[in-house]
């Protein structure tokens, strides 16, 4: 019962509202109030906000470009390392190749000692 009465008091309290007259009077008063915001300050703050936004976008673009560059560079390195391994294998085995193959190895691994079989 007590709980119900308290809830009822809270509900009724929520119905308290300012009058329309007061609302419009105060709104008018707020519009009359001079601000500490001269136009130049407004301009500079807008500019500052714009610059901050531009900075964020530029940073994001740089980060994206860096990631793309890094991933492509990694993939190039991977290709190079595969070629290196092949060259090393060729060097290790000193394989016997035909003349036709020797031309190919000469291009791919010019320093490899190739024994051309007869």
């Amino acid at each position: 019962m007590t709980k119900e009465r308290i809830h009822n008091l809270f509900d009724k309290a929520k119905e308290i509202k300012p009058s329309e007259g007061f609302l419009s009077r105060t709104r008018a008063r707020l519009y009359e109030e001079p601000l500490d915001h001269p136009r130049s300050q407004f301009f500079f703050e807008s500019l500052h906000f714009g610059a901050t936004q531009a900075g964020i976008y530029a940073t994001a673009a740089c980060a994206a470009a860096f990631i793309i560059y890094m991933s492509s560079s990694i993939s190039v390195n991977e290709k190079q390392s595969v070629a290196m391994k092949r060259t090393e294998q060729i060097e290790d085995y000193k394989i016997d190749v035909t003349l036709k193959d020797a031309r190919y190895y000469k291009e791919v691994a010019p320093n490899v000692f190739v024994v051309v079989s007869k």
């Binding site: 309290a13 929520k14 308290i16 509202k17 300012p18 007061f22 609302l23 105060t26 709104r27 707020l30 519009y31 601000l35 915001h37 300050q41 407004f42 703050e45 807008s46 906000f49």
Partner: peptide
């Protein structure tokens, strides 16, 4: 914050009833 009074008026209209009620009691 940038001096837009219409934005402040919107804050005012949205919050006036609750602030008024708090003070009224």
């Amino acid at each position: 914050r940038l001096g837009d009074k219409d934005a402040f008026a919107a804050i005012y209209e949205h919050n006036l009833p609750r602030i008024y009620r708090f003070i009224y009691f």
